[in-house]
Amino acid sequence: MLRLLLQELRFRINGIIGWGLGLSFFPVVYIGMYPSFAEQMAIFEDLMDLAIYQAMGISMAGFEGFIASTVTNLVPVILCIYAVINGTGTLAGEEDDGRLELIVSLPIPRWQIVAVKTVALGIALFIILAIVGAGAAITMEMITISVETRVTSLDVFLSLLAAWPLAMAVGMISLFLGAFSPNRRIASTIATVVVLVSYLGSNLSGMISSLEKIEKLFLFHYYESTAQALELGQQTDNMIALLVISLVAFGLALAFFQRRNITVGAWPWQRGVISK
């Protein structure tokens, strides 16, 4: 099992480094440029009352609000794209391109294949966030002198790491969809819709009272990208909720992959029927 895990990580290493460094661009640029236009930010504060910005969870009042609205708001959303690509690519993608047949023909139980790929996905997401967090923290250290704030570089680092349960939940839902649906294209389409609806729905539910009743259905409801969360961290019950969602998705992925006819590309209800 450990050998398979090491292989899975080896396959992902380029993606991890690429996404880690690429995603670091956001915090480095946003944090790094803040001192040069901090005074001008006041001009935009009125704009922040617009519904479109609220829907996107953007509130740039002060440095903490700016970082929360840009770095800790955007990075998890973009990381969710990686989670969708990787989650659906892990089982469905490998099945589509035929490589899964070779792995399944090895003397390895199917549950181990799913478990190993889940752990590899989790590690990949964590390392990417750690790289991004490190980039943000280093940039933060460099501008500390010119910005007045209670937020430390460690706060920024930890707030980015705290996006892991959200990204993992998206990754696991994608993995489950890959084990459930006929092919990767369908799985990734559904997963992308889930992410977009969750993101917009979570932000809009604060403004539209009718959405409040269903706000708990949105994944992003369990992740706060606010100045307060930057300083105090994510709520424990929200993180637990995301981990539970991940576990449920893992269980479903296991159940469906266990029964899946590899190479066939069919919905579960399209299993063989003896014609009369």
Binding site: F11, D97, G98, R99, E101, L102, S105, L106, P107, I108, P109, T263
Partner: peptide, 18 residues
């Protein structure tokens, strides 16, 4: 299946490699 596959060498018809 796992115990069986320990004793099998398999070449798929539609071979896809890394």
């Amino acid at each position: 299946g796992v115990a069986i596959r320990e004793r099998i060498g398999y070449l798929p018809g539609e071979l896809s490699l890394y």
